[in-house]
Design a protein around this nucleic acid. Structure first.
Ligand SMILES: [Mn+2]
Ligand SMILES: [Mn+2]
Ligand SMILES: [Mn+2]
Ligand SMILES: [Mn+2]
Lengths: 218, 218
DNA sequence: ATATAAAGTTAGGTTTATCTAACAAATTTA
DNA sequence: TAAATTTGTTAGATAAACCTAACTTTATAT
């Protein structure tokens, strides 16, 4: 059985190589940064994960998940998102509170628990942030990738998911009147730095490029 | 914040000194045995817990919980039993399955989660094994201590709780027709070794002294 | 009261996950 | 293409939880 730390490395690799899929491989530094550890620490773990045949990795080369590693990673993501949904729907947690607790709950080992949880929630397909929940077979209904930054001026779109799950970002999102399924109209955008003016339910706000990149829309 | 290991030591101390309260102090060996570690390992932890002012302990002396240590221990016990109740009542776990998963869930840190869990279960007072669940203030409606072994021959009693929480014991209990609140009639008992003959719903069984000591009755 | 046994402690290791500092390889830039 | 920068690796430490083996203290039994 994998340790919590190993599970966190696989999850991070999954996010970096598959979910935010600009590329399907990552480097040591990027992985280390995502996990808030030093590259030397990540390097040690890479050797261990390689030895366990969970990643493809050669010295000085790029890193990717093997089929076995990907399977484990998806299981952790599934648990994380099911727990977030549970906390949100059954225990009145807000969407900026669920992530932190799910980070702990995702490491509970019990297949029966996860099956029952999934059933209890009526087999949800999305978590409170709009992210897809892998099903029991590990299948993911993959979701679009367009962000608010890519929406043309004058167009209206709908918020389908948020990229960042931190409480600070989510509270910021709420403060501009946004939430899942909200309609957003793009009023203007600065060429210079991507600063974007938007309108949500009649309320106008100006948000940064970084903000816009973290809002997925359809 | 305490580590999972520290929490487990405090919980074990609580069980040994307060719940199975033949005595209010324990020794290093007994504690080590309860935690399935070697005395040398327990000794290291005792120094740490003493330094954190969670236990009273002097070299070569007996061990007891401080007020602070007891408070932490009760919180872990509360979480453990609330989770067991949750799994049993909401997720169709059997009473011999809940303990193992609760051993993991008891270490999740989130006061909001526990408050909501308690509320969701409608503030239960007992877990699936009949053990008292401490309330949010840490108060415990203490329960009787009579075991099946102490019931006189010919008398009838009711199972109120089980001492051992292992799957093997609980399955054994079920196999003789027992469960919470079941009526038990004591037919006979051997002076020699405490072997006891009982009748449950018309079904007669012969159980060992060890078995009888692990059944609490009223 | 002493010898034996039991209980408890210490010393010295291991494994996992982390770090810093120094070094090596690969990539970018001039 | 050579220098500079970035990226990645290695060596050597540390802290938490564990272990075994040896030792010390306390309790028990003659
Ligand atoms: Mn999350
Ligand atoms: Mn995690
Ligand atoms: Mn239990
Ligand atoms: Mn535990």
């Amino acid at each position: 059985m994998l340790s919590q730390t190993e599970e966190n490395y696989l999850k991070a690799l999954f996010h970096l190589t598959t979910e935010r899929a600009s590329k399907s491989e990552v480097g040591t530094n990027e992985l280390a940064a995502a996990l808030n550890v030093k590259p030397a620490t990540a390097n040690d773990m890479l050797k261990k994960l390689k030895q366990k045949k969970l990643i493809n990795y050669e010295k000085y080369g790029k890193i990717s998940l093997t089929v076995a590693g990907r399977k484990q990673a998806i299981e952790v993501v599934r648990k994380h998102r099911l727990w977030e949904t549970f906390l949100y729907e059954k225990f009145e947690f807000t969407w900026d509170e669920v992530h932190e607790v799910a980070e702990q709950l995702e490491h509970i080992h019990s297949s029966k628990l996860i099956e029952k949880l999934d059933k209890f929630l009526n087999y949800p397909e999305k978590d409170p942030h709009g992210d897809a929940i892998p099903n029991a077979k590990g299948e993911i209904k993959i979701q679009p990738g367009k962000t608010l930054l890519q929406v043309a001026i004058g167009k209206t779109c709908k918020l389908v998911a948020v990229r960042d799950n931190s409480a600070s970002f989510l509270q910021y999102v709420v403060s501009v009147g946004l939430g899942l399924s909200c309609k957003i109209r793009v009023i203007s955008r600065q060429e210079f730095d991507g600063t974007t003016e938007i309108e949500v339910n009649g309320k106008k706000s100006i948000v940064s490029q970084k903000f816009a990149e973290n809002i997925y829309v359809a």
